[in-house]
Design a protein around this nucleic acid. Structure first.
Lengths: 339, 339
DNA sequence: AGAAAATGCTACATCGATTTAGCCCGGCCT
DNA sequence: AGGCCGGGCTAAATCGATGTAGCATTTTCT
């Protein structure tokens, strides 16, 4: 029932707990413990399969070897896949991950931060919600390593790893234009956060650069917290409301999925009658008929960079600000081909 | 930087830490602390936004209010969605979740159990791998609450929440038979674990009950750890190897996805030329053309039951064995219609 | 030889919360 | 007056690991 403690080893080895601690923490040399005693202790520790109690250690050292991962929704393919990469990378450094989903709700996010804080996680990976900047700043000032992901606060000096969302949207839109689509709409989430703003800006910039007239009836901004039925309903009526629409860019993966359902409900031919580009790759996009063109994020690289930065910061706090913007890849498929 | 401790409150209130602890743990009455002092302490605690240090508390009480969630692969839609339900349900009881993916690898699973153990999680939700029974039994004997999910060990007395996999496969197969398919194959994972055995048994039982000849060339068992390319390759050659095959049942969601890709690579018409049923619902199955019939698991109910059992066990250990087998739902779509 | 330095190890305080055992004071009883 | 009781609170031990300060003992140096 009870685990093996450092005392048990000390007793068996006939030395003090201090000595055991020194040896097991590799400070034998430094603390001038004899080879003999060292070896004896190590042998006993192995025999008893000693594992330090992380709570006790954490209490004493203030390090829990745990990182907090705050995502928008762990059930979303994008975040789940990232969570896997984070888990794997963190594991390499012997860190475990406590996760939580915000549902893009600031209060939930604040609650998560609070819980993670009094659970003494060593570092944070945060997909911030609106208005979370104050809390994050405070946390940073308290000396906690933090890496933001997916989005960031422009006015806040913090590490982050994000996609070049502007480029993603710009490339997607340009691609649609080059494929001959004339009246291109965007369906996005009503949010002032960077990732959404950049995607919208990329979209409008592409139109502008190609001298395509723009007006705001081409933009549909939906609240995050609709359920699928409502997304579909809203998207359907939006698509119907734009005269001569012939292409649409969905700015998130779940919008893309609902978007496809909507278009199919309208019985429009994807590709021919309406070009479609989604965001984030997904099995569905790859295997849909027609397959769906999308802006794909380099998930593995994102996760690796995040953990890498966090580990650097954990090991020597105060490393220079690292703000990584990764390149999206436009995966061209059939949904953006007229032919 | 440092948090507020019980001592800070004690100092401000002019009482001992003991008193503060009693009050904040609701033992004021029991420990005969006066109303006056109680109120003062509570007020100060609120003002200082006191949050108990979970490490210290955990060290003393042995309770960390953390549960370990071991899944096969957190990036897999099924497990990710379940992780979300578990997160939400656990949160209601003020528990946090540490997760880990086994990749269906026993050594990884053992490693996870070990890590979670010396991190002193209070309870475990485990998707076991092969040969993990010994470890689980030991853990159980050590008095740790455990709920198995998705699969279990028949010879091991443990709580579990699983699907009626036999029925799922039986219904799926029967459905294919009733739709007029004659030569039905199954693609499954080479595994002796209950969930896979039951699915295979359900499949063969359905054939038998409907007097459909069976031989083992209809069964393809693939190793879990192939990558997608290899799954597709293997499935393609299997499908080609079965003479007159006209339907196939894929026993897991990822097999279904790879299966669809395989069939499309062969250019067979799903539904008409080859009936298809998958396991676990997925956006892809819903929106594929043709849409894919599948055996759907009640994810919300599974997650709720798991956490419910775990909480009961945490609150009063030794509750009677709870073994829940939930009903699957056959979601009939176009991939199993000849017409 | 005697002092200084090096060697090898340990006592004890500490992290923050919990919990057991029990102190002190006032009132009541006989 | 002495004993008992109960109300109101606290000292101190505890959980397990860490790390500082320091105690013996031996070796080295002059």
């Amino acid at each position: 029932m009870k685990g093996i403690s450092i005392k048990d080893i000390a007793k068996q080895a006939g030395v003090s707990p201090t000595t055991v601690s020194f040896v097991l923490n590799g400070k034998a040399k430094e603390k001038r413990i004899s080879e003999q005693v060292s070896k004896r202790i190590i042998k006993i520790a192995e025999r008893l399969k000693y594992k330090p109690n992380q709570l006790a250690r954490g209490l004493r050292t203030g390090k829990t070897k745990t990182i907090g991962l705050i995502v928008e929704d762990i059930a979303n393919n994008f975040f789940a896949t990232l969570a896997k990469v984070v888990e794997d990378e963190a594991d390499k450094h012997h860190y475990k991950v406590l996760y939580g989903s915000t549902e893009d709700n600031t209060d939930k996010a604040k609650g998560l931060l609070e819980v993670l804080k009094y659970r003494q996680v060593d570092g944070y990976i945060i997909t911030p919600t609106k208005n979370l900047d104050k809390e994050i700043e405070l946390l940073g000032e308290a000396g906690k390593p933090i890496v933001l992901m997916d989005r960031y606060f422009p006015h806040l000096e913090s590490h982050y790893v994000v996609l070049d969302n502007f480029k993603g949207a710009y490339d997607a839109t340009t691609h649609l234009i080059e494929q001959g689509y004339k009246k291109i709409a965007i369906v996005t989430i009503a949010s002032d956060q960077t990732q959404m703003k950049d995607r919208l800006n990329g979209f409008t910039a592409a139109l502008k650069d190609h001298k395509i007239p723009f007006n705001k009836s081409l933009v549909k901004r939906l609240p995050f917290d609709l359920d699928r039925e409502n997304f579909i309903q809203e998207i359907k009526s939006f698509l119907l409301s734009v005269k001569d629409i012939d292409a649409v860019f969905f700015a998130t993966n779940y919008l893309g999925i609902s978007g496809i359902e909507s278009i199919r409900a309208l019985n429009w031919k994807i590709g021919k009658e309406i070009g479609v580009v989604g965001f984030d790759d997904h099995d569905l996009f790859r295997l849909h008929s027609p397959s769906i063109t999308c802006v794909s994020q380099p998930l593995q690289a994102i996760g690796e960079n995040i953990v890498d930065i966090l580990m650097k910061e954990l090991n020597r706090p105060g490393t220079p600000l690292t703000q990584i913007v990764l390149e999206p890849e436009l995966v061209v498929r059939d949904s953006s081909k007229r032919g």
